[in-house]
């Protein structure tokens, strides 16, 4: 989903360019263009568009049993019935609430942290920049499942040190959300930091020198010169992070084995997984994932629009 939405934003611009050309150049480059686009188009069609279309189709049907159910299911068209079931399911709404709360805490915390670290490393006073870059980036190299396991053990009472010093039980009902936020922040801060840092390196050095000549200190330079220069990058990071938050799955899934506080429907993604592969209700799972995709698309579009307006 994340790839298709970000691609969508970009292809909007490309479409305008292409729209002007067909009459003139297309015939000449037609063969080559088709050939060169084919791999991408086929992959997009086969791995993104077709599954999305199939999910849409599935979401309109349900499997009806009769009697004891042993004669097998028959497929029945229910129009938007699955969608109605999903949006009125308290478990789903609870999951949405969890993710919203998670996003409100994690998105600013993680992006803010990444930005501060990137600015610090980019500042003139930083020493051993490569070492710092690597150190902060390293958690991103740890696969999500492994990261979840490591943190799960660290949080466990009697095994990990954290529950002894934390004010709340990190695996308890109240501690689980901060714990998940912590894992995700630990894992993704370095990744976003690298993106921001790379953008900061492209800020023209003359601009920074000019700022210094005008008497701006490091703080002022960071806030008034560097930040506005990398604003588009910040918004891209924001979009990715919001989508990532909506799709929250791996960390809570892994923590399920450590605590009962993470239910099998704790986030919308877990709800989809549980509906499809535990309860076997593919229609409901498809409806929930379509809703999740829609919300991701809308939120991305809103953020991109704000970004575009700001940059103008």
């Amino acid at each position: 989903m994340s790839r298709s939405t970000s691609g969508g934003a970009r292809s909007g611009r490309r479409a305008v360019v292409l729209g002007r050309t067909p009459a003139g150049r297309m015939p000449r480059f037609g063969g080559a263009a088709v050939l060169l686009c084919a791999p991408f188009a086929l992959l997009l069609l086969g791995t993104v568009l077709a599954p999305v279309a199939y999910a849409l189709y599935l979401s309109l049907f349900t499997e009806r049993l009769s009697g004891l159910g042993f004669s097998g299911p028959s497929r029945a068209f229910v129009a938007l019935g699955n969608y109605a079931d999903v949006v009125t399911d308290p478990d789903f709404l609870h999951g949405v609430g969890n993710v919203a709360l998670y996003a409100v805490v994690q998105v600013p915390l993680m992006l803010g942290g990444a930005l501060v670290v990137a600015l610090l490393i980019d500042s003139a006073v930083a020493r051993l920049k490569q070492v710092w870059l690597l150190a902060v980036f390293l958690p991103y190299a740890v696969p999500g499942v492994i990261a979840g396991l490591i943190w799960g053990y660290l949080y466990s009472p009697d095994i990990g040190p954290i529950s002894a010093v934390a004010p709340i039980d990190p695996l308890g009902a109240n501690g689980i959300l901060p714990s998940v936020v912590n894992i995700a922040t630990w894992q993704w801060m370095g990744y976003n930091m690298i993106i921001f840092y790379t953008a900061l390196r492209t800020v023209p050095r003359e601009l920074l020198e000019a700022a210094r000549v005008d008497g701006a200190g490091p703080m002022r330079t960071a806030l008034s010169v560097k930040l506005p220069s990398i604003r588009p990058t910040l918004f891209v990071g924001l979009v990715f992070t919001i989508i990532g938050a909506l799709q929250l799955f791996t960390e809570p899934l892994v923590l399920q084995s450590f605590t009962g506080a993470v239910t099998s429907t704790w986030t919308p993604s877990l709800y989809v997984y549980d509906s499809a592969f535990v309860a076997g209700d593919y229609g409901r799972a498809a409806a929930a994932s379509v809703l999740l995709g829609l919300v991701s698309a809308v939120l991305s579009a809103v953020v991109m629009r704000i970004s575009a307006r700001r940059s103008r």
């Binding site: 499942v145 396991l149 791996t250 899934l253 084995s257 997984y273």
Partner: peptide, 13 residues
Amino acid sequence: VSRRTLLRTAGAA
């Protein structure tokens, strides 16, 4: 736990 975690998660993936 390690096994359940691994399997569950691996199964998911």
